[in-house]
Simulated scan of single mutants.
Amino acid sequence: MVLCLLVLCLLFSACSILICLYNSISNPYETYMGPIGVYTCSSLSACLSVLALIVFVLNINVTNMAEDLVKNFAGGLLVDLKNKSSEMQLGYYLIIPYTVLCLGAIAVIYNYDHAAYKQRKEQQRPTEDAPKEIMMY
């Protein structure tokens, strides 16, 4: 299940990258899904990576999956496990910077979209410094 979640993270991350590349290369007036597409793909990727982290930790610490796996691969031998411990290796901790970078991408896209919205609203309202005669026309 954790591997499936990580594959989905990779898929959504690739979609986010492809949407960014398409929007930066294509005609500026024709974008594919705009910032909403990148925002959606990045947020799905970040949520799935956090879910993969949680499921992996619960699977290792709460269940007896690691012990059962050792017993199954021992063949016909009787195995008595003592001093059982679980250790998170480098691969687990590399998901954390990935999640942080996805959240950073979401923050950048949100700030960009908010600034563009604010600029559009400022351009739509009339200037308050102009004389009243000009504003009447």
Rank of each mutant, 00 (worst) to 15 (best):
C9L: 01
A116L: 15
L6T: 03
I54Y: 09
I96R: 12
A66F: 01
V70Q: 05
S45K: 01
C15E: 06
P28A: 08
N27C: 13
V70A: 12
M88W: 13
L8H: 04
G75S: 04
Q123E: 15
T63D: 05
N23K: 04
L6A: 02
L58I: 10
C102P: 01
V57H: 08
I54R: 06
S43P: 02
N72T: 10
C15I: 07
I106L: 06
I95G: 01
C4H: 07
L58V: 10
M136T: 02
D80T: 15
P28Q: 11
Y112R: 14
L48I: 02
N23F: 06
I60D: 01
H114V: 11
K82D: 13
E87L: 03
C102S: 11
N23W: 04
S43C: 08
V55M: 10
I134V: 05
Q89S: 14
L44M: 09
E128S: 02
L58C: 12
E122R: 15
V50L: 10
T40S: 14
L21T: 09
L94F: 10
I25T: 09
S42A: 10
M1Q: 08
G75I: 05
Y98P: 00
L3R: 07
I25A: 12
P126I: 02
E67H: 00
Y93T: 04
S85H: 09
E30L: 08
Y22K: 09
L48C: 08
Q124S: 14
D68R: 14
I17Y: 07
S49L: 13
L53R: 06
E128G: 00
Y92E: 02
Y110E: 02
S45E: 02
N83M: 07
N23R: 05
Y22V: 10
G34L: 08
Y32V: 11
F12E: 01
L11Q: 03
I60S: 03
I60H: 00
K82I: 09
I134C: 00
Q124N: 14
D113W: 15
Y92A: 02
S26T: 06
M135A: 02
S49T: 10
H114D: 13
V70Y: 04
A46C: 09
A14G: 01
S43N: 13
K132L: 04
L44A: 12
S26I: 03
L90C: 04
V38G: 06
L51S: 07
N27D: 12
L78A: 14
T40F: 14
A107Y: 03
I17E: 06
V108Y: 04
M33G: 08
H114L: 15
V7M: 07
Y112P: 00
S49I: 11
C9T: 07
M1V: 03
